[in-house]
Each structure stands twice: as structure tokens, then as C-alpha cells.
């Protein structure tokens, strides 16, 4: 991770920016804070990001996820308690999303823990991709850091697709953000984030073919975009991914399984 910080005295505004974090970039803006406090909170957020990355990033050759993905079928891999906790939580979203959100791309039911720190690799091998889950978890954890530090107004943007607004922009209520069609650049919707998180998923002209339907193993192609606003970033992440692969009927079945979802749409 490469990081830098700025401070705007006249607005008491702290801005931290990081690249090469979970394969993307991160910006965090905190209002009504002095520089030293901003640095301290950013340091705490950064430590949490590094912990999550060390465990869950598929982009790091030495992460635990990479080690598990490389493990031989039927071997037993010793993992950290954090890894066990994250994987268990991530797998837990499979059932309420009817299999549409599956960090193991279809092998969830075969994952078995012999103990909290011992994972048995299924006979078919294991490919874990915590991608969206990890970003959502990170944003929620950063929000917890900021709230415990007394922050009332802040904005977090993780890779442009996972965004959280805490409190309000100084000139209004909440943090207004718009979602645009990456192909036509037309504004599709505008949301106000006030202690809420927006997650978008979909293909872009630059990045097409990264979303795999776990049920079929096929790539979701074409111009499709989903957006979810929810209190928790993790729920928004899980559902925005789910909304790309689930049809309308399935989405109506899945929605009641989650609380504090404020807005949702799919654009085809």
C-alpha cells in the first residue's frame, strides 16, 4: 500500500489517499478534525486494512487466501483466527442470497473447518475470492474506527464502487452521490448517503468479464450495473454483486433476508 495525506486547515478537513490496496485505491475524507487526530485515525484504519489484506487479498502472493487457494485438495491448512472468522462470515451470505454470492465460486458447501484454525481443502480444490466481501468489510471497519474516534462527518471511497457517507457534507444533509452508466455516462440515479453506504457492481468498457455467476461458472457479460444503498457497506457489497446475477423474482425473495437496505436498482 502506498499512502499520502493532506490537511485543509480552513475547512478542518483531513484527506487520506492510498493506492495498491486490495488491488485498487482508497480515499477517506474526514471533516471537523485536527491534523494529529486525522493522522491517528488513518493509522488505525491503515492497520486494519493491512490486516485484512494479509489475510484475504487474492492479489498478494503471501496472503492466507493465496496459500489456501494453492493448497492441495484434501490437505489441511492452518489458518489464522481472523481468516476463519472472515471466511465463515463470507460463506454465511451464500444461504440468504440463494447461492448468488459465493466467495468460493460454488464450493461453499464443501468447505469444512476441523477446528477454528484448521481448514480442510475440498477434493475439488478451493478458489476463494473474498474481493467484494473484503472491501465491504474494510469500509465497515473503517467506519467503526472513525465513529469510535468521535468523527461525525466523513466520506470513504473504496475503488469508486464502495462508498460510505458518515454524517453530512458541510453544505447540506448527507453526502449526495450519483451513479452513472459507464458506457453512456448518463446519470442513472442520485443517492444521499447519511450513515449509509453505496455499492455498485457491473461491467465497464474498461473492465468487462470479471463477474462470474457462481451457480453457472459463467461470466456475466454486457452492460449491466447494480447499485445498493444500505446501512452497512458489507450488505451493500454482497447485494450489489447478487443483484447482477439474480433475476427479478429471486431478488424479491432475497431482499427480505437483509435489514437496513435503503435503495436498490439494476440497470441493463
Amino acid at each position: 500500500m502506498k499512502a499520502s495525506t493532506d490537511y485543509y486547515h480552513e475547512n478542518s478537513m483531513f484527506h487520506a489517499s492510498a493506492t495498491e490496496v486490495m488491488g485498487t485505491r482508497l480515499d477517506m475524507v474526514i471533516l471537523g478534525i485536527d491534523r494529529a487526530k486525522g493522522d491517528l485515525l488513518w493509522q488505525q484504519c491503515r492497520e486494519r486494512l493491512e490486516q485484512l489484506e494479509a489475510v484475504g487479498s487474492k492479489f498478494k502472493a503471501d496472503s492466507e487466501t493465496t496459500a489456501v487457494n494453492r493448497a492441495e485438495p484434501l490437505s489441511i491448512v492452518t489458518v489464522s483466527p481472523l481468516f476463519g472468522q472472515l471466511l465463515t462470515e463470507a460463506i454465511g451470505f451464500r444461504q440468504p442470497t440463494r447461492g448468488c454470492f459465493d466467495v468460493t465460486l460454488g464450493s461453499c458447501s464443501a468447505v469444512e473447518f476441523r477446528s477454528p484454525v484448521e481448514l480442510v481443502v475440498p477434493a475439488s480444490g478451493l478458489t476463494i475470492d473474498l474481493g467484494g466481501y473484503l472491501k465491504g468489510r474494510a469500509v465497515d471497519d473503517m467506519m467503526a474506527v472513525l465513529k469510535s474516534g468521535g468523527v461525525t462527518d466523513a466520506f470513504i471511497d473504496f475503488g469508486g464502487s464502495s462508498i460510505m457517507g458518515i454524517g453530512s457534507h458541510p453544505a447540506g444533509k448527507g453526502w449526495p452521490v450519483s451513479v452513472t452508466d459507464p458506457y453512456s455516462r448518463r446519470v442513472l440515479a442520485t443517492f444521499s448517503l447519511r450513515d449509509a453506504s453505496l455499492s455498485t457492481s457491473g461491467n465497464t468498457p474498461a473492465y468487462n468479464g470479471h463477474i462470474v455467476n457462481p451457480a453457472t461458472g459463467r461470466i456475466v457479460s454486457g452492460n449491466r450495473l447494480s447499485a445498493i444503498v444500505a446501512r452497512e457497506a458489507l450488505v451493500a457489497e454482497v447485494l450489489s454483486t447478487t443483484w447482477l446475477v439474480a433475476d427479478e423474482q429471486l431478488r424479491r425473495e432475497i431482499l427480505p433476508q437483509f435489514e437496513n437496505v435503503y435503495n436498490e436498482f439494476v440497470y441493463n
Binding site: A171, S178, V179, T180, T204, P205
Partner: peptide, 11 residues
């Protein structure tokens, strides 16, 4: 200035 901040994509 209070205006929508474009998110998610090339807007």
C-alpha cells in the same frame, strides 16, 4: 457547494 458527487465509473 452542495452537489452530487459522481461515483462508480467514468462520470
Amino acid at each position: 457547494v452542495f452537489s452530487a458527487i459522481p461515483a462508480a465509473g467514468p462520470s
